[in-house]
C-alpha cells in the first residue's frame, strides 16, 4: 500500500510526502527454528500457514526549494525496510555472499535516512553539479558471530543482531551537451555496524564499507559515426579480517586476530575504453560495431588473499594475492531491426 501527495507550498517550495505500508508474512511449509540463549535449536516449527508477520510503516518526506532558475536545495527523510538480507563473510580466501529472507528469528532491516543536497545547472544547462550529504541509521543489522560456520543448515545459530550507520557525501559534475560529454563522481562514505558479541562490542566497518569511490566517464563524438569513450573507476578495497600475528596452541600454528574487518583489500581500480562505429543504414536494420578493452592497464585487482607458509622459510608466513582478469578485449556487433 502506498499513498503520497505533492504540495506546492509556495512558488519556490515543493513538498512531497507519503507513506508506504508493507507487510511481510513468513509462511510455513519449510522448517523454522526456535533457539535458546546459547543459540542451540530447541524446537522446530513446521506448521502450515503464517509463522510470523512483519508489518512496517515507511513514511517519507522530501522538500525542494528553488533558490533561483538554476539552483535548488533538496532535503529528505525516508524510512525503508528490507526483507531480504545480505550476509557476507569477513575472510579473504573465499569471499562469498549469502542472501536470506526474513524468518521467525531474522527481522526486517529498518533504515531511516536523512539527506540534504545542493543542485545547480550552469552554462545554459551544459553543466550540472550536485552535492548531497546523507546519514542513515539502521536497525536489525545482521552479521556472522565470531568463528561462524556459513554452511550450518540452521543459519540463525551463526548470526548476531545489532545496529548500523552509514553516512557520506556525494559529489557529481556532469557535462550534458557538446561533442564531449560525461561526468565525474566522487563519494566519501562510511558504513559501520555495532553488534554485541562482535569486535568487543565496538563499531566496525561493514565489508562493503567503501570510503572512497571515484568514477570518471567520458564520451567523445569524433565524427557523426564514430564515438569513443573511456571509463575509470576507483574504489577503496573491502573491509576484511586479516591476522595480526600468530601463535601456537595444541601443537599447531594459528593466527592471532585483533579486530573484525580491521584491514582492507587493496584498492580496486581499472580503466575501460571503447569505440563504437555506426555502419551504413540498411533497409531493414541499422547496425553498429563496437570494440572495447576492459582493464586497459592490466591492473591485478585482488580477488582473494591467502596466508601461506613461505617457500623459502617455512617458519615465515607470506600473503599471496590472486587476481582473476587482466585485459579483456571484446567486439560486439549490434543490430536494430526496423
Amino acid at each position: 500500500m502506498y499513498a503520497s501527495n505533492n504540495w506546492k507550498a509556495t512558488k519556490k517550495l515543493n513538498i512531497n510526502y507519503g507513506v508506504r505500508v508493507s507487510n511481510f508474512a513468513v509462511l510455513g511449509g519449510s522448517d523454522y527454528y526456535v533457539l535458546d540463549d546459547n543459540k542451540n535449536v530447541i524446537d522446530t516449527i513446521s506448521q502450515k500457514g503464517s509463522v510470523k508477520n512483519y508489518l512496517n510503516i515507511e513514511p517519507r518526506l522530501s522538500m525542494s526549494f528553488a533558490l533561483n532558475n538554476n539552483s535548488s536545495i533538496k532535503a529528505s527523510y525516508t524510512r525503508n525496510t528490507q526483507n531480504l538480507h545480505l550476509i557476507t563473510n569477513s575472510v579473504t580466501t573465499s569471499p562469498t555472499d549469502k542472501w536470506i529472507m526474513n524468518t521467525n528469528i531474522i527481522k526486517p532491516e529498518i533504515a531511516d535516512q536523512v539527506s540534504l543536497g545542493y543542485f545547480r545547472n550552469f552554462n545554459d544547462n551544459m553543466f550540472e553539479f550536485s552535492a548531497e550529504a546523507y546519514y542513515k541509521a539502521m536497525q536489525n543489522q545482521i552479521d556472522y558471530k565470531d568463528n561462524a560456520n556459513e554452511r550450518d543448515p540452521v543459519i540463525e545459530t551463526q548470526l548476531l543482531y545489532g545496529k548500523g550507520r552509514a553516512y557520506g557525501l556525494e559529489l557529481l559534475l556532469k557535462k550534458n551537451k557538446g561533442k564531449f560529454t560525461g561526468w565525474v563522481g566522487y563519494t566519501l562514505s562510511r558504513t559501520e555496524k555495532q553488534i554485541d558479541g562482535i569486535n568487543q562490542n565496538k563499531w566496525y566497518a561493514a565489508r562493503q564499507d567503501r570510503i572512497h569511490d571515484v568514477s570518471v566517464v567520458t564520451m567523445y563524438d569524433v565524427t557523426k559515426r564514430l564515438n569513443v569513450s573511456a571509463v575509470w573507476v576507483y574504489q577503496t578495497g573491502n573491509a576484511v579480517t586479516f591476522p595480526s600475528g600468530k601463535y601456537e596452541v595444541a601443537g599447531q600454528t594459528t593466527w592471532l586476530y585483533t579486530e573484525r574487518n580491521g584491514y582492507r583489500m587493496p584498492a580496486y581500480h581499472r580503466l575501460d575504453i571503447a569505440a563504437t562505429y555506426k555502419l551504413k543504414h540498411r533497409k531493414r536494420f541499422n547496425s553498429e560495431l563496437s570494440f572495447s578493452l576492459y582493464n586497459v592497464y592490466g591492473r591485478e585487482n585482488a580477488y582473494t588473499i591467502d596466508f601461506e607458509q613461505s617457500d623459502t622459510d617455512p617458519n615465515k608466513t607470506v600473503a599471496v594475492q590472486t587476481a582473476l582478469f587482466r585485459w579483456v578485449p571484446s567486439i560486439s556487433w549490434n543490430f536494430k531491426f526496423k
Binding site: 586479516f242 591476522p243 595480526s244 600475528g245 592471532l256 585483533t258 580491521g262 584491514y263 587493496p266 591485478e300 585482488a302 580477488y303 588473499i305 607470506v318 600473503a319 599471496v320 594475492q321 590472486t322 587476481a323 582473476l324 582478469f325 587482466r326 585485459w327 579483456v328 578485449p329 571484446s330 567486439i331 560486439s332 556487433w333 549490434n334 543490430f335 536494430k336 531491426f337 526496423k338
Partner: peptide, 29 residues
C-alpha cells in the same frame, strides 16, 4: 516492432595471476 540483436565476441584472457604482496599488518602487542 524493433528487435535488438547483439553478436558478441569476447576474448577474456582467462588466466588468474597470483603474486606475493606486502600487507601492512599492524604490529600486534
Amino acid at each position: 516492432m524493433r528487435k535488438i540483436i547483439t553478436a558478441f565476441f569476447t576474448c577474456a584472457i582467462l588466466f588468474s595471476c597470483t603474486k606475493e604482496i606486502d600487507i601492512d599488518l599492524n604490529e600486534s602487542n
